[in-house]
Structures are given as C-alpha cells and as structure tokens.
Design a protein around this nucleic acid. Sequence first.
DNA 1: AGCCTCAACTCCTAAAGAGGACTTGAGGAC
DNA 2: GTCCTCAAGTCCTCTTTAGGAGTTGAGGCT
Lengths: 261, 261
Amino acid sequence: MAAYERIAGDLRRSIRDGQLKPGTQLPAETQLAEQYGRSVPTIREALRLLRDEGLIEKQHGKGNFVRKARTPVLRTNDRHQWEKDRVREPLEQRAETGATEHDTGLTVNDLVFHAAYSEAKAGEELAGLFGIPEGAALVERTYRTRYAAERAPFALVTSYLIRDLVAENPALLDADNEPWPGGTQSQLASVGIELDRIEERLFARPPTPEEAEELDLPAGTSVIQLRKTSYDTDNRPVEISFVVLPGDRTELLFTTPLERW
Amino acid sequence: MAAYERIAGDLRRSIRDGQLKPGTQLPAETQLAEQYGRSVPTIREALRLLRDEGLIEKQHGKGNFVRKARTPVLRTNDRHQWEKDRVREPLEQRAETGATEHDTGLTVNDLVFHAAYSEAKAGEELAGLFGIPEGAALVERTYRTRYAAERAPFALVTSYLIRDLVAENPALLDADNEPWPGGTQSQLASVGIELDRIEERLFARPPTPEEAEELDLPAGTSVIQLRKTSYDTDNRPVEISFVVLPGDRTELLFTTPLERW
DNA sequence: AGCCTCAACTCCTAAAGAGGACTTGAGGAC
DNA sequence: GTCCTCAAGTCCTCTTTAGGAGTTGAGGCT
C-alpha cells in the first residue's frame, strides 16, 4: 500500500475515533512530513484523500481542519404544509402591506427568492417527458432559494410549464408574480388544471464546478439531483422541475402511507 | 487561474460539447504535457479534477477515458409492487421446490441476497429513534443485495427491530428465513404489528473508502445515505433501516399523491 | 487608541527526475 | 497453433526544489 494511503488511513482513524475532534487544526504539512518521515507532497496527497472524503477542510494560509458536520435543511414531500408555513402565509401578509421587491430578490420570512422567466422551445428530453412535439413553446422559470442569513442558495431550480396550458392566466407568465401566492397547486387551478400527484426522481453525484461555485460547496461534498414532475388528473405531466440540492446541507424526507392489509 | 485549472476547463469543455465522446481515450499524459507546454504533474493535476467530477476514469497501464454514464437501478417508494414482482413471487416459487441456500447467499430471480443476523443493544442514537431505553435488546440484520450479473451489490443495509416485539415469531430471529416471504409488512403482521407508514430520510455524500470498496465505486461518485423508518398504527417506530446506495447506479423514485382542492 | 508594516507561519502551484507497476502486442520457441 | 518472453506504452508513487499567495500577530508609528 502506498505511503500516502497509510498516512491517510492513520489520520482517518484518528478523526473517526474522536482523537481529532471536529474543528481541530491538524499539524502543518511540514510537521506531518517530518513526523511520518515523508516529503510534503506525499503528505499533501494523503490530505487530499481526506478532503475528498469530506473529513477535513483546507484553508489556504491557515491550515487543515477536521470538518464539522452541518445541520441540514429538511425538505419534505409533504411540502404543502412546509411551503404554507414558511412561505405562503408570510407572503400573503406581505402582499397586504404592499411591499414588492421582485427582480433583485424577494425576502419572505427568512427566505430569499430570485426568479427569472423566459420562453423556451421543448428539446428532445423535455418533449419526451411532457409528451409533446419537439419545438413546442414552454415557459422556463429558474429560481434560487436562499436563507437570508446564508450567502449561498440551498436549491437551484429550473422549472418548465407548457405555455399554451397556462397562457390564459397572464400572471403565470410574469416573474413579478413569483413566488406564486398560494403555491403551485392553487396557481395551476386558476387555469383549470387539477393536480393529482407528484413524482420525484433523484440520484447523487459530485457537483460540477459551476454548481460548487453557486452553492458554495467545498470539495468533498455531493449534490442531489432531482427531477420533479407534477401530473394532472388526466395523468399528463404539467410541470417539470430540475432541482440541484447541496448534499452537505439538505436532508430529504419522504413519507409513504401504507395500505392496510 | 492556475494552469491545471485552465487545462481541466479546456478538456471539460471538450467532453461536455461532445468532441470527446464517452469511452474515448484521452491523449497520454506526456502527450498532453507537450501539447499544453506544461509538465506531466501539472497535467495529472488537471486530470485529477476531471476524475473527481466523474467526467473521466483512469485506468492504470491503459490510459484516461471519458466516462460512460451508467443506467441506474430504479428504486421506488411504491416498493410493495416492486418487491412483489422482483422478489417475493419468485421466492415463493422457489420455496415450493425446496431449494435453500441462505448463509452463502440466496439467488432469487437475478438477485442475490446475503444476510446476517445478530443481537445488539440500543445505543444512544437508536434508543432515541425507537423511543426505548438505552441498552434495550434489538435484532440487527445486515444484508447486501446484488444483481447476479454484477460483482458489486447495489445496496448496503443494516436494519433494526426491537427484539421483544418480534420474539414471538422465532422465524423473525432467524437469518435462514431471509429474505422474508411476503415482505416486511406481512412478516410483522405475524406478530400482531400493523404498519401505517414509512418515512425515508436521505442525503448525499462522498463514499467512505470502505463503501467505495464494497460497492465498487470509482472516484468521482457519491452515495445516497437513507434512513428508513416503519411506523405502526400506534405511531411507534417498528423497524429502522440504514441504507447506503451507490450514486452512480441508483435512481430513487418517490410518488406523492396530492389531496384534491 | 488606531493604523501600518512586516515577518513568520500556513497552504498552493509548478517543475524535473527516478523508479515502479500494469497492459498490450510483437516476436520467438515449442 | 499455443505458449512465453519481452519491450514499449501507459499511469503511479515519491523526492527535491523553487517560488507564490493567504493569514495572523507583533511591533512600531502616528
């Protein structure tokens, strides 16, 4: 086994069994090099392994530190309730006071939204998912949701609607109407669409550099990529959202009721 | 910006826009070094970035290759149906023929199970989750599920039951009874437990080296860590499972029915 | 007190070089 | 034809050396 792997294993053990507590600074690379009788690049190789596993954090000019766990944001599939508490009611209160700050971002409770609308034509993937011809007109909404106290958003969302289905309510084509009062379900009801169920598909992967930048993800973290499809009562996809969530501070909670036997 | 970052960006672009197709071999490191006018270590640094992003794959002695996407296994929360089709019915057929191969692994359809049972005492975390005193007796079941055609399992599961709740059906304490005929829900019904719902909490992170080994995960992949809790109709946790899924070949699908408005 | 400078510490980028280990295919021995 | 050997290609590990860049605190200046 390579020297850097043995050293990494040694440090990993110390971190796991609590000898090196979260937040602790590791000895300097030159120190470790001397201690293990190896060159600095070899030590750095070992530290890189630990960083990629999410065990340590490198801070240029300061040192290497045992990473602290972050307390994740909980996202539930019983989201109606969640959105209602966190977003809609405060929003409706806000509406009464007449405050508006779209465009540059809208602060509701302790959440900040940034939304942008544009028109898009269905590509191959979206056409297939919606079951519509390629090139059909879609409304594309991209938004970021962020806690006011934090600098990075906790969700990157791009959402698509079939334009012709929602065109009769112009408010749905207007970014100033974001976030939607009453939520997706009630907004879509305004154009006669009744939702039946939501399907969420997800998997995990390392972030792209762009995502790492935007979500402020350190090395050694993952993202959850999620595709959410809302179906109407005729079993047709009405809204499709692509969501990227930071793995180090998101916990998803799904509750599935069981049929009794 | 550092030279290795520019080079990585350059290659990343080529991969994304399809100039370098999945499966293609990249030029040798010495070639790239000459091509970019940089030393080999600098090139290797760039390639490491791409590997950590999951874009390329290194093969010792052969070369660097653009990684191919894997087609993921779909796991749904409507799992009754899934398990029924894939596991239970074939299992019941098998039971009739009298074949048994527990212990060393049990092949049903094209799935292979490995299960091990042991007794455990509730530690702090599990006691809290179950709402029982620390030190209470639990049944611990660990199992691996694998497709017969593949060498690595697609799930690492450790599952806990409160021993006193299931003790009256000795079959539930016996690894030879694995996987459970009729599934969890019907097995628990045999000791008078009626399940009400399942809660699944999940997040994503890089794999530990042990997980990478066992799941045969290359660098540049993530795992999904999932905690599944089954509640009975008295709202008490009955079974708690800790699941680790390989991010590069698992897709989770959750369906949430909406209440009509 | 407040501010500035600077030295000392940290990690980061880059190079060149030596040897090792894995993979493959060509060529020869049988 | 089959098998073996071997060379050439690949990436991997480790060292030494050099300079750059971010962070912090001590000390002096104002």
